[in-house]
Design a protein around this nucleic acid. Structure first.
Lengths: 356, 356
DNA sequence: ATTGTTTCAGAAAACGGTTACTGAATCATT
DNA sequence: AATGATTCAGTAACCGTTTTCTGAAACAAT
């Protein structure tokens, strides 16, 4: 005996609008209209329909609804991982704004794998997402540019859009909305803060050439040095593979193991790195801020824990903005917007004037 | 002039299977079968179809697909907020396992609002989610139980299921899968660790009667005291409103302001609270672990930052398990499973033997 | 050469809604 | 009383797939 695949193993079948109509003694169309909102039905009919809906515990089939016509659409967000606090905050912003706009939020993670990213974008396209928001740091090489351009065109072709969140713009002919942080500006402020306190040998932790986020922050670091006429020593820029706690720990550990302590301050490219470096310093008997000054970037949990002066990024704001712009752009059309969100330094207690 | 609502403002229309069929010179059915996988089409036909798909950049309409027949279904996760690191890790686990099982992951947040939770469950029901995973701490009062029971039955009726993640079970007649942590066990271990180090006056930070998570942890704390025959002083249990950093800070701050320091160790009901308390202690010149010993709960970022001994929770594991059990249960039927995941203490450097 | 199997592909009926069009009452207007 | 306007509700076409049923070639076996 064969059973239709759609039938549940146990329990009743999902009730349809037809059954509601039958029970209420009206036509399917009437039920649909009454449930869709403002339809001038007679109170008696409306009541009968509502009762039938209650009794059958009816909920509309979103797929059928989407297929038939106007449907509450959805916004998709695709990110590397949701456990990174930074991404989590962005995701929160996206989710919140999505709810405000009356949409559903689909989420997918890629683990940084381009293959999975492609699959995700296709998946979201199948789901008719109104917009696909790609968030996060990335290697902006040629292949990347081509891939994004392809996404952008494919999505635009079907009336959806691509939103790049925390990624650099692609080019004038690629129809993608872009929302990013002023990484360089934040790094400039952070570094300037240390320079103003008299520090000149500032260790920069976590650079990773080719990665847009890190590149922007390092650029700000260098610009601040230049602005203060402090010589730039490339040896003070330490390279890291990821922006995680353990990398911060490793970088500082190695630095302290292999050479003299030739720096008086640390600029960590994010708070996680700062946290790891902090621990490594502590293990060498060096305290922040008494022995070493430190500034982080992100203003997330580690800043709170360590009382770290850090560059505040409007994480949730960027997520909300991404959704807002995507929807506005959808309505208005025209050239896709590109906004850069500002940052500001949050002063805590991890920087001391340099004793000379 | 009227325009169909489904047409995009700019750009072409999404191409349909019909167009692909036409371009390939075959029937719609053939295209569908070729794209669905293993259909014994002649190589020539297959190639023609694939080329048409490429040229039109065709992707199937997931809604139509879902409506028509077997479709890749989805798993929904509903949580308070995604910025809480704990929830984020659980969400990550859910997302990962969902991907492994070839499903889509829908995510929604409620902000702890029962109203929004209800709306979310309805929404997910409309979307035909295979399972709805509710995660997080909760007040387990009567109203709550009734609400959950209603969800469980509504979902079961349509062949879906309710999964409670980190929440207590409801009762034998409520068809819900339950996955939770051994909160009491973890708290017992944490408190025992402090007791073994000679601490007897252990401040317990963050209790909140009625909230299941906190209740479980406090129960473990008390049980450990009893097991070590240390008198239980209710005055050492400090009540908090949330489990966040600022609450931890506030609680410790008030404690230090209003009375003598009559404790030598702190058991924080989670790491965030530990972090806040840590800062408050520091502001009073008290260091961890030299002056005060401390143990946290969750083993998340603050533990890393502060080198805190903490109870490790298998955050991602619980998410993955939730998905796995939901799907298994769907296939097998029977009484819904209930599993309790174990915890273990991660020793770092925040506890010192008490000097007497 | 005829028949019985395969192999491949088309026609058409679902799936569960929405909505344009239509029509029957009811009501207001002359 | 006849007509026009307005309300409310039904009919049926359509959304884009999947899938069952069916049929025409092509091939193998007698």
């Amino acid at each position: 005996m064969t059973r239709r695949a759609s039938e549940p193993v146990n329990g009743r079948r999902r009730s349809t609008i037809r059954e509601v109509a039958e029970r209420a003694g009206v036509s399917v169309a009437t039920v649909s209209r009454i449930l869709s909102g403002d339809y001038p039905a007679s109170p008696a009919t409306r009541k009968r329909v509502m009762r039938a809906v209650e009794e059958l515990d009816y909920v509309a089939n979103a797929h059928a609804r989407a297929l038939a016509g106007t449907s509450a659409k959805s916004i998709a967000i695709v990110l590397n991982s949701v456990i990174s606090p930074h991404y989590a905050h962005v995701a929160q912003g996206v989710e919140a704004q999505t709810a405000v706009e009356g949409r559903l939020c689909l989420i997918g993670t890629t683990g940084g794998d381009a293959e999975r990213e492609l699959a995700m974008v296709k998946f979201m396209r199948e789901q008719h997402a109104e917009a696909v928001i790609l968030v996060g740091n990335v290697v902006a090489d040629e292949k990347y540019g081509k891939r994004m351009s392809q996404y952008a065109h494919a999505l635009t072709a079907i009336g959806s859009r691509l939103v790049l969140c925390g990624r650099p713009p692609l080019g004038p002919d690629v129809p993608a909305v872009v929302v990013e942080y002023d990484n360089a500006g934040g790094a400039f402020a952070a570094t300037s803060h240390l320079l103003s306190a008299g520090h000149e040998r500032i260790l920069c932790l976590g650079r990773r050439p080719g990665h847009t986020t890190q590149d922007g922050r390092v650029a700000g670091y260098r610009k601040a040095l230049a602005a203060h006429r402090v010589p730039h020593d490339p040896a003070l820029e330490v390279e890291g593979t990821t922006m995680e706690w353990h990398e911060g720990y490793r970088m500082m550990k190695e630095r302290l193991a292999t050479g003299p302590r030739d720096f008086t301050a640390v600029f960590a490219l994010n708070d996680l790195i700062a946290g790891g470096a902090y621990r490594a310093l502590a293990e060498h008997g060096l305290r922040v801020p008494d022995d070493v000054s430190m500034v982080g970037f992100d203003d997330l949990q580690p800043s709170l824990d360590l009382n770290l002066t850090s560059v505040h990024l409007p994480h949730e704001e960027i997520g909300r903005t991404a959704v807002r712009l995507a929807l506005e752009h959808e309505a208005r059309g025209g050239t896709p917007p590109h906004v850069i969100l500002g940052t500001h330094l949050v002063i805590r207690d991890s920087v001391r004037p340099r004793v000379s």
